[in-house]
Amino acid sequence: TTVKVNGTKYKFDTPEEAQKFAKKAADKYNLKVVVDGDDLRVE
């Protein structure tokens, strides 16, 4: 599972880890998590 934040992709072994990271990033930058198929985007 990958998470894309500000054009940078981060790869995670499990969707749970990816979800946690995406949520933290979204909170930090005051953005929202967008599900894109198997991957997540923070925008």
Rank of each mutant, 00 (worst) to 15 (best):
A25F: 15
A22E: 02
E16V: 07
A18S: 02
D36Y: 07
T14A: 03
V34R: 07
E16P: 02
K24M: 14
G37P: 03
E17A: 11
N6G: 12
V34T: 10
A18E: 01
G7W: 03
D38F: 10
D27M: 11
A25W: 15
L31Q: 08
K11G: 05
K28W: 13
K23H: 10
F12M: 01
N30T: 05
T1R: 08
V3M: 00
Y29S: 05
Q19D: 07
E17H: 05
N30H: 11
L40T: 03
A22F: 03
N6Q: 08
A22D: 02
T2F: 11
V33F: 05
T2P: 01
K4N: 13
K28Q: 11
V34W: 11
Q19M: 15
A18K: 00
K20R: 13
T2C: 13
G7M: 04
D38W: 08
D39M: 15
V3Y: 00
R41A: 10
V34G: 04
Y10S: 01
F21K: 01
T8G: 05
K20P: 00
K20S: 13
D13M: 08
T2G: 03
K28F: 13
V33M: 05
F21Q: 02
G7L: 04
A26Y: 02
D27C: 10
K9L: 15
V35Y: 13
Y10G: 00
V35E: 09
Q19H: 13
D38V: 09
D38Q: 11
P15Q: 08
Y29P: 05
F12S: 00
E16R: 06
L40F: 09
F21W: 07
N30W: 06
T14Y: 03
E43H: 06
T8S: 08
V42G: 02
K4A: 10
V35H: 09
A18R: 00
F12C: 08
Y10I: 06
G37Y: 04
Y10R: 02
V35L: 11
V3L: 02
V42K: 03
K9M: 14
K9I: 15
P15K: 11
V5A: 04
V33W: 05
K23Q: 14
A26G: 05
G7N: 07
T14H: 05
T14C: 04
K4D: 12
N6M: 14
L31I: 08
V3T: 00
Q19V: 13
D39H: 10
G7Q: 06
D13F: 06
K9A: 14
K11N: 11
E16S: 08
L31D: 05
E17T: 04
R41V: 15
V34M: 09
E17V: 03
Y29T: 05
D39N: 10
A25S: 07
V35K: 10
V42P: 03
T8V: 15
D27E: 14
F21N: 01
N30A: 08
R41M: 10
V5N: 01
A18Y: 00
Y29V: 04
V33I: 13
K28I: 11
T8F: 14
N30Q: 10
F12P: 00
V34S: 08
K11A: 09
K4F: 15
K9F: 14
K20A: 14
D27Q: 12
Q19P: 00
F21H: 03
F12N: 00
E43G: 13
T1F: 14
L40C: 05
G37Q: 05
A22M: 02
Y10E: 02
Y10T: 02
K24V: 11
L31T: 14
D13L: 08
G7D: 06
R41H: 08
T1H: 10
Y29F: 12
A26R: 04
E16L: 08
A26P: 00
Y29Q: 07
K24P: 01
F21M: 02
K11F: 14
Y29A: 07
V35R: 10
F12A: 00
P15F: 14
T8I: 15
Y29L: 14
N6K: 07
E43F: 08
K9T: 15
V3K: 01
D39G: 13
D39P: 02
F21L: 02
T1K: 07
D27G: 06
K4L: 15
K32F: 10
Q19W: 15
T14F: 04
A22Q: 00
E16W: 07
D39C: 15
V42A: 04
K4H: 15
E17I: 05
D38M: 11
K9Q: 12
K24H: 13
G37E: 05
K23L: 10
N6C: 15
N6H: 12
V34Y: 13
A26E: 05
L31W: 12
D36I: 08
R41Q: 06
E17D: 09
G37D: 06
K9D: 11
N30D: 10
Y29K: 05
Q19E: 11
G37R: 04
D13Y: 06
K32S: 13
V35A: 10
T2W: 12
A18D: 00
K4Y: 15
L40M: 06
K11R: 12
L40W: 08
K11H: 14
G37K: 05
V42Q: 03
K23I: 09
T8Y: 13
K24L: 14
E43R: 04
G37W: 04
V42W: 03
G37C: 05
V3G: 00
D36V: 10
E16N: 06
K32E: 10
T2D: 03
D27V: 09
F21G: 01
K20N: 12
K4T: 15
E43W: 06
V3D: 00
G7Y: 04
A22T: 01
V33A: 02
Y10K: 01
A25M: 15
A22I: 04
L40S: 02
T2V: 12
D36L: 06
E16I: 07
A18M: 01
D38C: 09
Y10N: 01
L40G: 03
K28M: 13
K24T: 13
K23V: 08
Q19S: 08
L40I: 12
K28P: 03
K32H: 12
N6E: 05
D13N: 12
K11V: 14
L40H: 03
K32D: 09
K20I: 13
K28G: 07
A26T: 03
F12K: 01
L40A: 03
K23R: 10
F21A: 04
A26K: 04
V35C: 07
D27K: 12
V34K: 07
V35P: 08
E16A: 10
Y10P: 01
F12R: 00
F21V: 02
V5T: 02
A18C: 01
K11P: 03
F21D: 02
Y29D: 06
G7H: 06
D13K: 12
V5S: 02
T8C: 13
K32W: 08
T8A: 10
R41E: 06
V42D: 03
D38H: 10
D27L: 12
A26M: 03
K20W: 10
T14K: 04
K32A: 11
K11M: 12
L40K: 02
E16G: 08
K23M: 11
F12Y: 02
Y29M: 11
D38S: 10
V3W: 00
Q19L: 15
K24F: 14
P15W: 14
E17P: 00
V34I: 13
P15L: 13
T14M: 03
E43Y: 09
A25K: 08
E16F: 08
T14E: 03
N6R: 09
A22W: 02
N30Y: 07
G7E: 05
T14W: 02
V5K: 00
E43V: 12
K20V: 12
V5W: 14
T8K: 14
E43C: 11
T14G: 03
K23W: 09
T14Q: 03
T8R: 14
Y10Q: 01
A18V: 00
Q19K: 12
K4E: 13
L31V: 14
K4G: 04
K32N: 11
F21C: 07
D36E: 09
K11T: 14
T2H: 06
Y29W: 11
L40N: 03
T2N: 06
V5R: 00
K24Q: 14
K23S: 08
T1E: 02
V42H: 03
V34E: 08
K28E: 12
R41K: 13
E17K: 07
K9R: 12
P15N: 07
D13P: 10
A26D: 02
K32P: 09
L31R: 04
F12H: 00
K20C: 01
E43N: 05
V33N: 01
V34D: 05
F12V: 00
T1Y: 15
A25V: 15
T8L: 13
R41W: 09
Y29I: 04
E43A: 08
P15S: 09
N30F: 07
V35I: 13
A25L: 15
K28D: 10
Y10H: 05
A26S: 06
T8P: 00
V5H: 05
T14R: 04
N30P: 04
V33C: 08
T2Y: 12
V3H: 01
K23Y: 11
D27A: 13
P15G: 04
P15I: 10
K24G: 09
V5F: 15
T1V: 13
L40E: 02
V42N: 02
G7S: 05
N6W: 13
N30C: 10
K32I: 14
G37M: 05
D36P: 01
K11E: 12
